[in-house]
Design a protein around this nucleic acid. Structure first.
Length: 507
RNA sequence: GCUGCAUUCGUCUAGUGGUCCAGGACAUCAGAUUCUCAGUCUGAGGAUCGAGGGUUCGAAUCCCUCAUGCAGUACCA
């Protein structure tokens, strides 16, 4: 049987990178087995709806190259794929559970529950709506049938709760963790159906997974504690449960604990695939895309955070990941996010990225700064500095000196490299280069080397200061490559400008 | 508190009773590439496998106890 898996986010904001990984694992598993990947939006909590979140999710996966076969924005034979649009279908399932004794009406108001909790807290106890306490609450187990009917007829607010059977051992068979056993006595009677007429996650999740014929539920470890409830729900409905796989958490790089939005801000890396602007507060959270990451790198890095192919291979394309992936090889413990490795992956993938594309990106940056250059030159520049890139956004910081003259010169470099006589030597070199016809990098190289040798100088004495006048700093690729792109005229102008400016401030 | 899950180099991890006094990658350090920086290449250091007990001829690998961490404990997902 071909697997059917789903990624089911709730549209409460941008998609957390942990969620991205969950989706990725679902996708890899589905594709490997020729199965179906479904996007379902779990928006049963209407109070937490955030404008734009759904669109964000879809766009993020498009960027990452995780493709859904079915679901919101795509369609399919199991729709609708948004739970709010499925609202009318849940009630009958809740009713079914009441009818067969697996659930009951509860009329306790939120205030009454809050009160109860306070009472318990005063005695340092924890209130839980369960088999011990439900007898003392206001529900269809304690009220007479007439009164329940009366309240229902009156339109009194109620919820429907699951009724756990005490003293039962519930077995959750998890692909990653093996058999997890839980005694039903510690479980609470979770609300399945809310007073606003919407199901809770627990009910909607089971009903939808069943109706959509989901075969494997691959989700975050934070769901493990409610897995027994879900197993019981399948049992109560008389449905076959899907297989479960609970993924380890993504942890913050320093210390312990779940990776959160704040950690990203604090440590300087994105926690979201795309940039997100909160529609209410206007607050902006950075995204991998906007930070100059390549989707291939994000995917590769994320895939390895909690999984590996069992050998030493670490660089893998999406296709390779699909081939090699296996749920059994997912690790059990949480993984700390490693920024350095993420950077390395991005650098690695950037090297295989087409120069033309990088050039287009750089061109945009140039235009934004009011600079212009023809595409041929930009491509040449890109080819020269590519190996120094860690992010697409490094393009400018690694190449600006090809497009604008230095306006300042690194003082430490001046101190170290600008000696007596430097200015004179560079003046001579400027003259020599001007009279070099035809001019190209080989000719330039030969002339400069002749000068150095002819004056019994060593390379460093000339080249470093020369570089300083062209770049403004002690960095960059081979100097003659730079000169070649700049051209004689520009080179000579920069030489003279540099000599003037530096001589002035040196004195 | 209760319940559950987890625990191998700084980090991600390999490892499923002997070939492991533990392998790889990122990071770190050193050397090379001598105009600089970056990159690249080569090499090095780095884990008494959370602790303590067992089982076994033999344990990172199996069992038990403890410790620590994390997650969950809502009419949120």
């Amino acid at each position: 049987m071909k697997p059917r898996v789903r990624f089911a986010p709730s549209p409460t904001g941008p998609l957390h990178i942990g969620g991205v990984r969950t989706a990725l694992y679902n996708y890899l598993f589905a594709k490997q087995n020729g199965g179906t990947m479904i996007l379902r939006i779990e928006d049963t909590d209407q109070t937490r709806f955030v404008e734009g979140a759904e669109e964000y999710i879809i766009e993020a996966f498009q960027w990452l190259g995780v493709k859904f076969d079915e679901g919101v924005g795509i369609g399919g034979n199991y729709g609708p794929y948004k739970q709010s649009e499925r609202k009318p279908m849940y009630k009958q399932y809740a009713d079914q559970l009441i009818a067969n004794g697996w659930a009951y009406y509860a009329f306790d108001t939120p205030e009454a529950l809050e009160q109860k909790r306070k009472e318990y807290e005063a005695e340092k106890k924890n209130f839980q709506y369960d088999w011990r306490t439900r007898e003392s609450m206001t529900n269809s187990l304690t009220l007479s049938a007439e009164e329940v009917a009366q309240r229902l007829a009156n339109g009194d607010a109620y919820v429907i709760r699951f009724k756990h059977t005490p003293d039962t051992e519930i077995l959750v068979n998890d692909i990653i963790r093996g058999e997890v056993r839980i005694n039903s006595n510690i479980l609470d009677d979770k609300v399945l159906y809310k007073s606003d007429g919407m199901p809770t996650y627990h009910l909607a999740n089971i009903v939808d997974d069943h109706l959509m014929e989901i075969t494997h539920v691959i989700r975050g470890e934070e769901w493990l504690p409610s897995a027994p409830l879900h197993v019981m729900l399948y049992k109560a409905f008389g449905w076959e449960a899907p297989r479960f796989a609970h993924l380890p958490l993504l942890l913050k790089p320093d210390g312990n604990g779940k990776l959160s939005k704040r950690d990203g801000d604090r440590l300087g890396f994105p926690v979201f695939p795309l940039q997100w602007k909160d529609p209410k507060s206007g607050e902006i959270s950075s995204g991998y895309r906007e930070s100059g990451y390549l989707p291939e790198a994000v995917i590769n890095m994320l895939a390895l955070l909690g999984w590996n192919p069992g050998n030493d291979q670490e660089v893998m394309s999406m296709d390779e990941l699909i081939q090699l992936f296996s749920l059994e090889k997912i690790s059990k413990a949480g993984a700390k996010f490693d920024l350095e490795k993420a950077k390395w992956f991005n650098h690695h993938y950037l090297q295989a990225y087409p120069n033309e594309k990088l050039a287009e990106s750089l061109k945009l940056t140039l235009q934004g700064k009011g600079l212009d250059a023809d595409m041929d030159k930009i491509i040449r520049v890109v080819a020269l500095i590519k190996e120094r890139l860690y992010f697409i956004n490094d393009l400018w910081s690694q190449s600006y000196y090809f497009f604008e003259r230095p306006t300042e010169y690194n003082e430490q470099v001046i101190k170290k490299r600008w000696k007596e006589g430097t200015a004179e030597h560079l003046m001579h070199i400027a003259e020599i280069l001007t009279s070099t016809v035809p001019f190209d990098k080989t000719a330039a190289h030969d002339k400069v080397m002749d000068y150095i040798r002819g004056n019994e100088l060593n390379m460093g004495q000339i080249m470093n200061s020369f570089r300083l006048t062209l770049v403004g700093d002690a960095k960059g690729p081979d100097l003659f490559e730079i000169i070649d792109i700049l051209g004689v005229e520009e080179t000579v102008i920069r030489l003279k400008n540099g000599i003037d400016a530096i001589s002035k401030c040196a004195n």
